[in-house]
Design a protein around this nucleic acid. Structure first.
Lengths: 230, 230
DNA sequence: GTCAAGTGCGTACGTCGTGCGCTAAGGTGG
DNA sequence: CCACCTTAGCGCACGACGTACGCACTTGAC
């Protein structure tokens, strides 16, 4: 186990130095693979072939790392390039939902870091949505309220989906059998409530599609309301 | 510091035994006062005049404690007793928002525990909303989608508010001065985006009222859309 | 009076975030 | 070619965390 001077690996340019971008990228990879609570500085350091405390040369602390990670993930959203406001909002909504489902740990993090966030990638998307609404007759105030309403809806809905998918993933089972296993307990708990029972008794062969339908249904109602606003 | 047999406090019925309800209640008090990350089993135990590990006689682990806490807080919601569906949903929405603002740490927790949750208090509220919608002509499916859309909107919006209020509270300043301090940085970050800049340049004398207005604006648009659903 | 059940706690293990000070690797001026 | 300086990485250590384990004690039933 003793390591002499000669076997100790040399540190030089042959081993690319740690950079902030690498750290953030690896953190996202780890989060996607193993979830939020297995992200530790030690763990992340090891994955990068470095000691835990080496990361602190590039990142102030874990909270800052998470802020960086969040904005990096926001960077996956591309600016919607639709012709009318409704198309832009729809595209953005689906894009945000897809992002959260790709990175379910975002659901846990958004509650801590907030949505009104100064990262550059968030601002870019916001501005382009405001622009789309404004050119279609919204006042700036209305546009602001509309965007935050839609974003709130999307985040609320996707958060719930992500939380479900996370517990599902932790169970390690297929969705169908997991639901089948849970059903007795759920039915027992819903026993006094006929409507909940009725909903639980339906079986769903295509849960993914159902979730997406639910999402677009609510989104469309909200957009309808915005379209015919007083 | 040495404690003899004679000074050691006797354990008997004079000191009321630890109960699950007491533990949950004290946990909520601690969370409201100091936030999510200062809730530790040791801390909570000390507040109850008990050792940390004593809690494990009444609660399986910290995650279960949090589940209990969440359902207890849901219990604060009273069943809406409005005449028409729209009134019920509006009342429920405001009630949920108020609950989250009273307990801002709920924002961080909801992302982990999910919204579709088997606690008895959640089920009760859900059932009564479904009933209200159904008697006003919604099919059960439509009612289900409507309720989850509204709940998602409310949670998304309130989560953002709660996160802001939490960072505000951590800063220890009044909202006005905190905003004034942040403004230069925000304006600099928004520099390339004229609409964001325009929004930031407005000053707001009554931020609480503005937040509530924003909330009800989006809620009303969503309810409008549900009212005139195809 | 004896015993079973149940409650609280002391100790301990492994893990976490992170401050501190050392080492060693370029880069730079003589 | 050498002496110095800056800086990246690391070993160590500290205090706090969740929680498993087993002992000590109270209480209620018989």
């Amino acid at each position: 186990m003793a390591e002499s001077v000669w076997t100790r690996p040399r540190r030089g340019k042959e081993q690319p130095a740690l950079t902030r971008a690498q750290i953030v990228a690896e953190a996202i990879r780890l989060l996607d693979a193993d979830g939020l609570d297995t992200l530790s500085m030690r763990n992340l350091g090891t994955r990068l072939g470095a000691g835990a405390t080496s990361l602190y040369r590039h990142v102030a602390n874990k909270d800052e790392l998470i802020e960086l990670v969040v904005d990096e993930v926001y960077g996956e959203l591309e600016n919607p390039a639709a012709e009318r406001w409704r198309g832009s909002l729809t595209a953005a909504a689906h894009s945000v939902r897809a992002m959260i489902l790709r990175h379910p740990w975002m659901a846990s993090v958004l509650g801590q870091v907030g949505l009104s966030y100064l990262g550059p990638n968030v601002m870019r998307l916001n501005e382009s949505l405001l622009a789309a609404l404004e050119t279609d007759g919204f006042t700036l105030e209305d546009a602001d309220q509309a965007v935050s309403a839609v974003v709130s809806y999307v985040i609320g809905m996707s958060t719930a989906e992500a939380a479900w998918l996370t517990t599902l993933a932790r169970s390690g089972r297929a969705e169908a059998e997991w639901v089948a296993d849970l059903r007795p307990a759920a039915l027992a708990a819903a026993e006094p409530y006929p409507r909940l029972r009725a909903l639980l008794e339906r079986t769903d062969d295509t849960p993914d599609a159902t979730r997406e339908d639910n999402f677009t249904y609510g989104l469309n109602r909200l957009l309808d309301g915005l379209e015919h606003r007083p």
